[in-house]
Nucleic acid binder design. Structure first.
Length: 482
RNA sequence: GGGCCGUUAGCUCAACUGGCAGAGCAGGGCACUCUUAAUGCCAAGGUUGCUGGUUCGAUUCCAGCACGGCCUACCA
């Protein structure tokens, strides 16, 4: 007896009660896990209809003696049900007696308006389409706990309408990007996610293994090199909406797998990609939100064109720094960040990068192109004519976040080989020190001059949905197992 | 990786300086034929994240661990 009581925790009790309903219905030959059910979405149901069907999750149950009101939620919205137990047929009554909040139910009846003006179905027939064995979170406060929301996203989606809206917007954004590019003659392609050599970015890769080939493979850190091989092959405008993987830390701006859009346009260049991205993002923002000015984390961000542009070197000048002055840069860098990176001493360009991130980037609230990045940190970009230290490259910043990166693609195979060699000599541990000969060989066949562009879809979604954490825009962000 | 904060019933939250852990919702029972955070009454529900320590006594103080959040570092 004592042992039994201890096991009767409220959760276990609810589970057992609902299991009993399930068993009872099955014994009565009433299937608690149904099949296809023809129904009208809640939002499309109108007043004065006969024999309307609705199906969805029971979100609220208000009993008044012999009558009850229920809220039924489907993806389109909510519809109220009015149930008078006596006017149900026998099977429906049994289903009704075993109905709980959280169950998926289907109902048939005629619509009317209640005294308070709410559109309601007077239910004649009712069945359970899926018996829920677990209680839903609280109806008023919903599910708030951030960890539970991420770990149990389905519950988050059931309870929090705003969360569903975020992911609807994300989906719509991707659709708009795709539409825009395909309407301009870009071909959507898919390239490998398992690479022999990780390339196209500087990041620690994930390693995996192919058994029959006995081969170590890397999950891609960027699709860039494969996409440019397609330009060699004669496709002139290609893009890929790609999942890429980087084996680095996790933060509000970083998830180990993330989504990027990369687009390449033959016979174009950095300037062409700048115009493209300006138009692309502007048109997505206005289609998605119906305005060019949005609010992000209490700041106003205006996407009306043209956007500001500033040279990378000038940004440092505005801080009173000459980026070439190693001593001055080191002094500045020491004051803002550690002198180590991956356990190695910082290089001049690491320091410049740290200063940029800390001092310059946060000021770039309105959409801003930072142009002409140094060659040393742009191994795949073409140099500015007459200025061999700089490349034809830009990064786009919005609300202090890096949103896009683009450049005139380096298509000289000899120079590319040299740049790879420089890069490898500087590379940190955990990264293969191997030159991507396949890519260099492809360039040797001749790649047309081209502009290339990458856009961070997760971060763009953050900005357009006013979220400060990347986990809020990824359905199932990576978390440590409990 | 480092710093700060958090973890109490299925959910949302209380518990002053260490003194029997408390509500609302959900769940159970009763009443109620237009409610919508329905209402009223009754009863139930807890290893206070885990492991140690201090203490007559720990949800409370201390240490370690786990998970999360924010900042920071690496990266995009």
């Amino acid at each position: 007896m004592e042992i039994q009581r201890r096991r009767n925790m409220s959760q276990e009790e609810i589970y057992q009660q609902r299991m009993a309903s399930r068993t009872f219905l099955q014994a009565e030959n009433l299937e608690p896990y149904g099949r296809a059910f023809a129904r009208t979405p809640a939002k499309e149901i109108t007043e004065g209809e006969k024999d309307v069907s609705a199906a969805g999750r029971v979100m609220a149950f208000r009993r008044h003696g012999r009558t009850s009101f229920l809220d039924l939620q489907d993806e389109s919205g909510k519809i109220q049900l009015y149930v008078k137990r006596e006017s149900l047929d026998g099977e429906s009554a049994k289903f009704f007696d075993n109905l709980d909040i959280g169950d998926i139910a289907g109902a048939v009846g005629d619509t009317f308006r209640t005294k308070t003006g709410e559109l309601t179905i007077a239910v004649r027939s009712l069945k359970i389409l899926a018996k829920s064995l677990r209680p839903l979170p609280e109806k008023w406060h919903g599910l708030k706990d951030v960890e539970t929301r991420y770990r149990c996203r389905e519950l988050d989606l059931i309870m929090n309408q705003e969360v569903r809206d975020v992911f609807r917007k994300r989906s719509r954004l991707v659709e708009l990007l795709r539409q825009f590019l395909t309407s301009r003659g870009f071909l959507e392609v898919e390239t490998p996610m398992m690479h022999l050599l990780p390339g196209g970015a500087e990041a620690r890769p994930f390693v995996t293994y192919h058994h029959t080939l006995g081969l170590n493979l890397y999950l891609r850190i960027a699709p860039e090199l494969y996409l440019k091989r397609l330009l060699v092959g004669g496709f002139e405008k290609v893009f890929e909406i790609n999942r890429s993987f980087r084996n680095e830390g996790i933060s509000t701006l970083h998830n180990p797998e993330f989504t990027m859009l990369e687009a390449y346009s033959a016979f174009s260049d950095c300037q062409g990609m700048m115009e493209l991205v300006e138009e692309l993002i502007n048109s997505c923002v206005t289609s998605l939100l119906g305005t060019e000015e949005i609010s992000y984390q209490k700041e106003r961000v205006n996407f009306s064109r043209p956007w500001k542009r500033i040279r990378w070197a000038e940004a440092f000048q505005q801080l009173g720094l000459d980026w070439r002055d190693e001593k001055q840069v080191q002094e500045k860098a020491e004051s803002i960040s550690s002198e180590e990176k991956d356990g190695l001493p910082r290089t001049h360009f690491d320091r410049l990068d740290a200063i940029f991130k800390k001092e310059i980037q946060p000021l770039l609230v309105q959409p801003t192109f930072v142009i002409e990045y140094p060659r040393a940190i742009s191994p795949l970009a073409k140099c500015v004519p007459g200025s061999p230290e700089m490349t034809e490259r830009f990064e786009l910043f919005v609300a202090g976040l890096e949103i896009a990166n683009a450049y005139s693609e380096l298509n000289d195979p000899v120079e590319q080989r040299e740049r790879f060699e420089e890069q490898i000599s500087r590379q940190t541990p955990d990264r293969p020190k191997e030159l991507d000969l396949t890519y260099v060989t492809a360039l040797e066949f001749g790649m047309p001059p081209a502009g290339g562009l990458g856009i961070g879809i997760d971060r763009l979604t953050m900005i357009l949905t006013d979220n400060s954490s990347i986990r809020e825009v990824i359905l199932f962000p990576l978390l440590r197992p409990r």
